[in-house]
Computed example of a mutant assay.
Amino acid sequence: MFRLAIFLVLPLSTIAQSYKNISLGSTLTTSDVTDFWPSPSGDFPFGFQRIGNGSSGFLLAIWFNKLKEKTMVWSANRNNIAPEGSQVELSIDGRLVLTDPNGQEIWVRDMARAGLVYRAMLDTGNFVLANSSSGIVWQSFDEPTDTIFPGQVLDQRSRLVSSFSSMNASTGRFELFLDGELALYTIKYPIDATNDVVILRNIEKKKKTDV
């Protein structure tokens, strides 16, 4: 069964809530999934989640921490699983980078020229990179996966793509976005095909369903 979600949490405003600032040079590794960067209330952690029971693969993710299932609401590398020994770092030069054990980049957001000084996990479910004036230079809300939150803006560049299944967080067969109106599309590819981000451009217009 695919998963698209609208998360009904009543958040504090971004301006009013407190930040738990995470300074440059901070790291997380897959060797300890109990180590993560939490929001002030602890509702939303940012860190690594193992994929499936006994799997050696990990997602860099945000999840809702108040449920036993630790429901994931965002991930950076859903189509490029990180192996055991990977780490994420907010480097001194202002890059948020996920690397494998050999130092190869799996996912990166480069904010070196934006004057990045810290990052923070907010109680809204949003993970932000901010400059010295507390201005947001990048946020996870700008790159949703399969979940949207109250207060999150879904513009015409944004896409919500369902997970392949409840046990597979990679991109699935359904896409929600604004096309003059809020619409749900099916993505054209065989159900047993290997997931590929490129397939998101190949949409069957005839299977449009308004929601």
Rank of each mutant, 00 (worst) to 15 (best):
F2K: 10
R3W: 08
A5D: 11
L8P: 12
L10T: 08
P11M: 04
T14W: 06
S18Q: 12
Y19W: 15
K20I: 12
I22S: 14
L24E: 09
G25M: 04
T29E: 07
T30E: 02
D32L: 09
V33Y: 09
D35S: 15
F44S: 05
F46C: 12
R50I: 04
R50T: 07
G54Y: 05
S55E: 06
S56V: 02
G57N: 08
I62V: 02
W63C: 06
F64Q: 03
F64T: 09
K68I: 05
K68F: 07
T71H: 08
W74A: 04
W74Y: 02
N77Y: 13
R78P: 00
I81P: 07
A82T: 05
A82P: 05
P83G: 07
E84G: 04
Q87S: 12
V88Q: 13
V88N: 13
E89K: 14
L90C: 00
S91G: 04
L98S: 05
P101N: 11
G103A: 10
Q104W: 02
E105Y: 10
E105L: 10
R113L: 14
A114V: 13
V117D: 06
V117Y: 06
R119L: 06
L129M: 03
L129V: 10
N131G: 11
N131T: 02
S134Q: 15
Q139H: 13
D146V: 03
T147P: 05
F149S: 10
G151Q: 04
Q152C: 00
D155R: 14
D155A: 07
R159M: 08
V161M: 09
V161Y: 08
S165K: 01
S170V: 05
S170K: 11
R173T: 12
F174W: 14
E175Y: 04
L176D: 01
L176S: 11
F177C: 08
F177Q: 12
L178G: 00
D179C: 07
D179W: 09
L184E: 13
P190F: 13
P190Y: 08
I191C: 10
A193R: 07
A193M: 07
T194W: 11
T194K: 15
V198N: 12
L200T: 07
I203H: 11
K206T: 09
K207Q: 08
